[in-house]
Design a protein around this nucleic acid. Structure first.
Length: 588
RNA sequence: GGGGGCGUAGCUCAAUUGGUUAGAGUCCCAGACUGUCGAUCUGGUUGUUGCGGGUUCGAGUCCCGUCGCUCCCGCCA
């Protein structure tokens, strides 16, 4: 139907007779000559109708409206001198048309499809008419970026000798972890499949099957509440390898990321990607997903204040807590109102309050607390935090974990306000040596990652004595302060796996029921193995510069997990329910 | 489950302490115009103020409930 797309004509096509198809983007009717911007996913080309060329085509062109689908035929011409449009890739030419066919009319769209206007439109309207929203250039571009990234992942992993294997979507519920999406069985009344939260057990079983290097761009399902970076169905780059150490994972993923970023024109990425231990990440950045695009690191100033006259600090230290501080460079002039907001944030994260010093341009410290500091303490603070005129220093005095967490959040606010975050930068970091367990209030260990994670080889005998101290062979990859993915070396010894389940206080019968197949598989010569999964939607989101993964998913769900376009979920026929042996009884 | 924000014309928004007939831009419709590219000019149409109830002489505005969208906490092994 067409000889060219709307994005490809240039001066080298001058004089050629061409046929274009596309959507009417805008019409500019001058009474005589009519200009139409014709759009397809490749670009926009100006086509022109003149009554002197064809009375009929000119008249028909007047009938077009926005989003009409047309086919036009004409000759590529140079635009006269100053009429060239530098904003368009095709701006040096136009197509003088003598033929037009209206292939389809369009109702007036419910919202403007112009990129700048559409971004202000309420999102539910965009989602209801998603097929219109996707016509926009930025959405088209996002779909392209996503495609390029998945292609690049496949090409890279294929080159590294990986086999792509599909795993079941209808599988078994695993009560740990997130809530499952359930699918009733027709042939086994009263039984349910679960949609996979991740292909975790399948990929380990593939290692036991001798696949050696597996990957999948896998859809995963978790029935939990949504966020800007969380959907109930999402996509992971899922990877598993045999006979490896964490180093093998790091170097593989370093290469994968560098390759993908290069493929979308966001490279180069310096490799190896730097590493932080979990402990350092928490102590220096107050987060297990540190944003390393800027400094403002947390500094432990407890030593300065041991035995201080300032009661608040002294008591915390005496009780085994810490005093930590952040120098938010250049923010000394922030209004009190901001500090009130930040104090509220600090309280949300568990601090009693937020102490701070605003160092004025003349060097004077304005602060409700410095009057309690000795000259010696002030001098040491100045020295350790490098306090200069115009700086803002804020403090957290609490247990190490609360202080870290709270300052970690405040650090991000400060970095944002100071404008020191380079939003065009992509900063990756590995976080390594995660703890294996958190210890619950009842002393019960809870896996930080999942119960198949191998401990550090030196730590296994702490399992029965001090599980909270055990280090895992687990790692996360972090991008601009967002957790991009994580993984671990898995347990391949069935006896160790059984010991872990026991430590988790899972009853024997339950272990057999839920994990019997896995322990059995381990007992038939399971190779040492491990892997990682990367959140593909988040990765694309950040590369595309979007704030929500909904903008890089073709048909996303709302916060209530609804598809506004298809109107899903929905009720079904009574017969369908009978087939799957479901009796709906809505409770209050 | 909890906290915040939003909901007025197709779209984006305005509407004073609760006060007359709810406005603007844009879109849309009609007309004019032969070089525009956010075309321009003239004229015109468009309202269950999300929905339901209440207070009041009078509610877009206040109160209660409810629905939807969104951000966050919880949750997400």
């Amino acid at each position: 139907m067409r000889t060219h797309t709307c994005g490809e004509l240039r001066s080298r096509h001058l004089g050629q007779r061409v046929t274009l198809c596309g959507w009417v983007d805008t019409v500019r009717d001058h009474g005589g000559v009519i200009f139409i911007d014709l759009r397809d996913r490749y670009g926009v080309t100006q086509v022109i109708f003149d009554p002197n060329d064809s009375q009929q085509a000119w008249e028909d062109s007047q009938k077009t409206r926005g989003e009409y689908v047309i086919q036009v035929e004409g000759v590529v011409e140079a635009r006269p001198g100053e009429m060239a449009n530098a904003k368009l890739a095709t701006g040096e030419i136009e197509v003088r048309c003598d033929t037009i066919q209206i292939l389809n009319k369009s109702k007036t769209p419910p919202f403007p499809l112009d990129d700048k206007e559409a971004e202000k439109v309420t999102e539910d309207l965009r989602l209801t008419y998603r097929y219109l929203d996707l016509r926009r250039a930025t959405m088209q571009e996002n779909l392209r970026v996503r495609h390029q990234m998945s292609q690049s992942v496949r090409q890279y992993l294929d080159g590294a000798d990986f086999t792509e294997v599909e795993t079941p979507i209808l599988t078994k519920s695993t009560p740990e972890g997130a809530r499952d999406y359930l699918v009733p069985s027709r042939v086994v009344p009263g039984s349910f499949y679960a949609l996979p939260q991740a292909p975790q057990q399948y990929k380990q079983l593939l290692m036991m099957a001798g696949v050696d290097r597996y990957f999948q761009i896998a859809r995963c399902f978790r029935d939990e509440d949504l966020r800007a970076d969380r959907q109930p169905e999402f996509t992971q780059i899922d990877i598993e390898m045999s006979f490896i150490t964490p180093e093998d994972v790091y170097s593989l993923i370093d290469g994968l990321i560098a390759n993908v970023m290069e493929a979308v024109g966001k490279g180069p990425v310096a490799t190896p990607i730097p590493r932080l231990t979990y402990k350092d990440a928490m102590n220096r950045f107050g987060s297990d997903k540190p944003d390393v695009r800027f400094g403002m690191e947390l500094v432990d100033v407890s030593a300065i204040f041991t035995g201080t006259d300032f009661k608040v600090f002294r008591q915390v230290i005496e009780q085994g807590g810490v005093v930590k501080a952040v120098n938010a460079k250049t923010l000394g002039g922030v209004p009190i109102r901001v500090m009130d907001d930040w104090t509220a944030v600090a309280k949300e994260w568990g601090l009693g309050g937020l102490a701070y010093i605003r160092c004025q341009d003349d060097g004077e410290w304005k602060s409700p607390i410095v009057k309690f500091f000795s000259d010696e303490e002030k001098a040491q603070l100045q020295n350790q935090l490098d306090i200069q005129p115009g700086d803002l220093v804020f403090f957290a005095a609490d247990s190490r974990s609360v202080a870290n967490k709270a300052l970690g959040h405040l650090r991000l606010l400060a970095g944002d306000m100071a404008g020191v975050i380079d939003h065009s930068a992509f900063a990756f970091t590995w976080v390594t040596d995660f703890p294996l367990f958190e210890v619950g209030p009842d002393g019960k260990p809870i896996p930080v990652h999942h119960p198949f994670t191998a401990s550090h080889p030196d730590d296994i005998d702490l399992l029965e004595t001090d599980p909270g101290k055990m280090r895992a062979q687990a790692y996360d990859i972090v991008m601009n302060g967002v957790e991009l993915g994580g993984g671990s070396i898995r347990i391949h010894d069935p006896e160790v796996q059984a010991r872990i389940f026991q430590a988790l206080r899972i009853p024997q019968a339950e272990i057999e029921d839920r994990f019997g197949h896995l322990i059995r598989a381990l007992s038939f010569g399971a190779p040492p193995h491990g892997g990682i999964a990367l959140g593909f939607d988040r990765f694309v989101m950040m590369v595309a510069g979007e704030d929500s993964i909904r903008d890089v998913i073709a048909f996303p769900k709302t916060q209530k997990a609804m598809d506004l376009m298809m109107n899903a979920p929905a009720t079904v026929d009574a017969k369908q329910l009978r087939d799957v042996h479901i009796n709906v009884d809505l409770v209050e």
